[in-house]
Design a protein around this nucleic acid. Structure first.
Lengths: 175, 175
DNA sequence: AAATTACGTCAATAGTACTGACATAATTGC
DNA sequence: GCAATTATGTCAGTACTATTGACGTAATTT
């Protein structure tokens, strides 16, 4: 420690003065850390990890999506998905159905078991969000939604839109 | 596929109707995914990962924090921190200084090099935030800050407060 | 002097990700 | 109909981040 040619320590804290929005950067880090810690607890009981959660979530959100579409949303490789998906299929959380038009494709659907787990995982997260929005009205909620959406890469923003409100158009058709 | 006793696929999407705030859950996921992708690019050039970024960030934010304090903020184990911290010290991004009162402690400080890297990593994140807040006023910003803060576990909310505004009290003294 | 604390380190393991290569089946293009 | 392409699956090898458990050292506290 304090080795011979050690560079000098800087003793002042980095702050927003440096022109960087550290306040929100840090808040975002802490918020996401705790946001994911809720489902992590439950997943541990199943021997699952965060990767299983993400797969389960999107299969429940967009039932019938293909493996390729899932890879695109998650931004991981086929090999990374393989193990996780196999485990979810083996444990009857997800089923594969041969694509109707293209029989090479496997459409992924949740089972009742998979739907239940997805809901169980989302419940504490939703509770946390509701608590955080406690005294907020529609305006505040809209502000937060707009902010989060604007944080997403514009090219990828399409992914969000796939499950619209709830009543509107079933789907956007193909691309 | 569609094996003998396969459970039946559910073909309807999970929605907010299930009493769960999937809209924000999903937005939060996408927003954080892209938020962290910016620095990940830069880190790759150094052979560093996300863990290095977090350590570098907090050492710059709270210069002089001890190893134990850092473990507490990051919520990881000593062994996990060890390799990452060692690499940052070996590459002259961080220096250790013997604790003044307690010589067992190692206070961690960034070097000029470590400060520069921390700023470089934060810059694209801050740019993304600024863009997302583009048309927002003070009210909207406050709403977002309040929301993010409320998403953090109350017990841990103290961690956020350590670097106050910028001018106010240097530190809260010891707890 | 003994117990505790702060830190470092070694060994073994796990989860999530990666790249590259190759196989199979189905579809498409000519 | 045959070749090329596409969708998916799988094998092998590797990397990073994280874990638990055990042990060592130095400094402080009791």
């Amino acid at each position: 420690m304090t080795s011979p040619a050690a560079a000098k320590p800087i003793r002042t804290a980095i702050t927003d003065e440096d022109g960087i929005d550290f306040a929100i950067i840090e808040l975002f880090f802490f918020a996401y850390r705790d946001f994911t810690s809720d489902p992590d607890q439950i997943l541990a009981d199943y021997g699952f990890g965060r990767a299983h959660h993400r797969v389960l979530h999107f299969v429940n959100r967009r039932p019938g999506l293909t493996v390729a579409e899932l890879l695109d949303v998650l931004k991981i490789t086929k090999q990374s998905l393989a193990r996780v998906l196999k485990q979810l299929i083996d444990t009857d959380h997800i089923v594969q159905v041969q694509g109707p038009r293209d029989r090479r494709q496997r459409e992924l659907y949740p089972t009742a078991k998979g739907r239940a787990l997805a809901l169980a995982l989302a419940r504490p997260q939703s509770r946390r969000i509701r608590a955080a929005l406690e005294d907020s009205g529609t305006t505040e909620r809209a502000t937060i939604e707009r902010f989060l959406e604007a944080m997403v890469n514009p090219e990828l923003r399409a992914q969000i839109d796939i499950v619209p409100a709830q009543t509107s158009g079933k789907n956007h058709g193909d691309h």
